[in-house]
Amino acid sequence: MAAVDFPAEIRDLRSTYASIVEVSDLDRLRQTIRELSEEAVAPDLWDDVARAQGVTSRLSHAQSEVERLEKLGDRLDDLEVLVEMAEDAEGAERDETMAEAGRELETLRTALAQLEVRTLLSGEYDEREAIVTIRAEAGGVDAADFAEMLLRMYLRWSERHGYGTDVYDTSYAEEAGIKSATFRVAAPYAYGTLSVEQGTHRLVRISPFDNQGRRQTSFAGVEVLPFVAETDNVEVPENELRVDVFRSSGPGGQSVNTTDSAVRLTHLPTGIVVSCQNEKSQLQNKAAAMRVLQARLLERARAERQAELDALKGADAGSWGNQMRSYVLHPYQMVKDLRTEHEVGNTTAVFDGDIDGFLESGIRWRRQEEKQDA
């Protein structure tokens, strides 16, 4: 086993850490915490529940970001001390301490690489929360089942990171799986992180729905939109909307399936249709559907601006409708991103939400594409 040049490795990690701290603007984050902390103790804060939730969410995020940066700095200091201890030791104790330092070095390298990816999220809406829609495409019942597998994958990914999720609408397929589902990921930078997932996902497996055990290829589409902020001013006049109410379908708790609480909004000028049925009240469903509609209108306006500036690439590998990832369960097991070439053999882990490697490689790939187009 080759000896590790710890001083050089630590200098390299400190350089990366310094760049992350600079981009993250640690002083600004601390000032933000002070300001939000003052807002959080205001006696009238909870008079406006939505505003209160926004304040507490931003405060929690800023505190966790500062804590993460400070802990990484402390761990770098501790690593230097550990290496010094190893150099002063002898025999088996020296070997054991050096091995511990090597393991910590690798752990820190991984943690800094993950944090460095966050600094690449500098797009117009990257810091927003995300609204994700998954739709079954070609492949019949297998596609519907695949769409549900992807829904679970993203919800499990969110759960792993402690991100809140809110499922707005789920349309269940007749035999198995879902036709579509729309949910919100309530975490800063969720849009910038998950936007690289947009596109068509492909599954190859022995179909559990084919009594002859034949191999089946199915497809599901993923759409990722930025959550609409109050400052976006996405106005939707009432005379441009058609509102339909209906009874919720599929699994649900008490009251969900017994009243006409589900809401479908049709935006007449564009033909965009949005529905929400997972809340108990019609008013809650209408408000959630309106947020999704505003997000789609915001994205439509952004795309039109890009088109006018001729900024859209002619063959965008991450665009809607193009295959971007392949999940193969037979005759071998592999998940591979078709843009970045990132691949893993543990398909079970991927479907259980372990997709950070794909997200990180996708974000780096996108930044590289942007640099080439600049």
Rank of each mutant, 00 (worst) to 15 (best):
A262P: 07
R135C: 14
P226G: 04
A101I: 01
V204P: 01
P251E: 05
D356A: 13
L194A: 04
Q212H: 13
E341T: 07
A52I: 06
Q114V: 10
R291D: 12
E197D: 08
A62W: 02
T217H: 00
A101P: 00
E129M: 15
E124L: 12
A8T: 07
I206W: 04
R366C: 06
P237S: 11
P269W: 05
F227C: 13
V132K: 02
L309Y: 10
A42L: 09
R51V: 07
M324F: 08
R152L: 00
G73S: 06
V185Q: 03
R58S: 14
L150A: 00
V273M: 14
F209G: 03
E360H: 12
N322S: 13
S195E: 11
Q53V: 10
D27C: 10
E39I: 00
P226K: 00
L150W: 00
Y17K: 03
R364W: 09
L112C: 02
N322A: 12
R128W: 04
V23A: 15
E35T: 14
V196Q: 04
F219V: 07
Q368N: 11
T340I: 03
V335S: 02
Q198D: 06
G162I: 15
P269M: 07
N211R: 05
A349M: 08
R305K: 15
D232C: 01
R94P: 12
I272F: 06
Y191P: 10
S171N: 11
Y172N: 08
A315Y: 10
Y327C: 01
R291A: 09
D78H: 13
R68W: 05
G345S: 06
A349W: 04
Y168D: 04
L293W: 01
L13M: 12
Q254R: 15
A111C: 06
D44A: 11
W46A: 02
L112P: 03
L45K: 01
R367H: 12
D373T: 11
E87F: 10
H61E: 08
E90P: 13
R215W: 04
V350C: 06
Q198W: 05
R291L: 12
